[in-house]
């Protein structure tokens, strides 16, 4: 099967107090189009950094990231931004909605950026899909955590991404709400045929994906297929 994400020999180091800190060390893997994947590992293992590099939010120190056939490691930040807008969707632990925009406007932003028309209808549809049809004019501060994450989910799917990156999507939610959000993520993912890469240390959640990549001390220590 064709891969949408190719990571080869990826490394990331930072300079801290005059010392070089290696966060990611020679990581290579490929993600198949339409698959669901989880990156797991203990706190500080480098999994969020890996997600950031995969999504083109940062540049690697060594190695390459190829997303949908585009080598992100050689692109400028503005070009990477364009790639993100075209092919990538995000879900964050802290929801990351724009506080001054209503729920509906938050969903519309990626589509507005692409210059699409009739975006309101699509945004309303998505809000309906996440069960918030009547909350479109509410600001993030007026929504509960679960509601905010559902808006975030609707926004992530609004630009019909080829790949969805989720960073601890249930980290700030109670168990019941988390369960609902997870179901939504997988349902929408399946419906849209999107590739999913999520970072979590919740092994139950990871177990719902087809593949689990385990990171420790900045190194890829295991790469297992699940029974899903």
């Amino acid at each position: 099967m064709e891969s949408i994400l190719n990571i080869s020999d990826l490394g990331k180091t930072y300079q801290s107090a005059g010392k070089i800190l290696t966060v990611l060390d020679h990581i290579s893997f490929a993600v198949e189009t339409g698959s669901t994947n989880a990156i797991v590992g203990p706190s500080g293992s480098g999994k969020t950094t890996l997600l950031g590099l995969c999504a083109g939010l940062d540049r690697p120190t060594t190695g390459a990231v190829e997303l949908n056939g585009i080598d992100l490691s050689i692109l400028s930040e503005d070009k990477r931004a364009h790639v993100r807008n075209l092919y990538v969707g995000f879900i964050f632990q802290n929801f990351q909605l724009l506080p001054t925009l209503t729920a509906l406007e938050n969903i519309m932003v990626p589509l507005e950026l692409r210059g699409e028309t009739n975006i309101r209808t699509r945004a309303v549809d998505l809000l309906d899909k996440v069960g918030l049809a009547d909350r479109g004019h509410h600001y993030p501060a007026q929504l509960s955590g679960g509601e905010q994450q559902r808006v975030s989910l609707a926004r992530a799917f609004s630009n019909r991404p080829k790949i969805l990156f989720a960073d601890e999507p249930t980290g700030n939610l109670d168990a019941e709400t988390a369960e609902k959000v997870i179901k939504l993520i997988f349902d929408l993912n399946k419906e849209a045929g999107t590739t999913l890469v999520l970072v979590t240390h919740d092994l139950d959640l990871a177990g719902k994906t087809q593949r689990i990549l385990r990171i420790k001390g900045g190194k890829l220590v295991s790469d297992n297929k699940t029974n899903v």
């Binding site: 930040e77 503005d78 364009h82 993100r84 807008n85 995000f90 990351q96 724009l98 950026l113």
Partner: peptide, 9 residues
């Protein structure tokens, strides 16, 4: 967030 969603610098 805006940058993440594809807004250029």
């Amino acid at each position: 967030i805006m940058r993440c969603l594809g807004v250029k610098a």
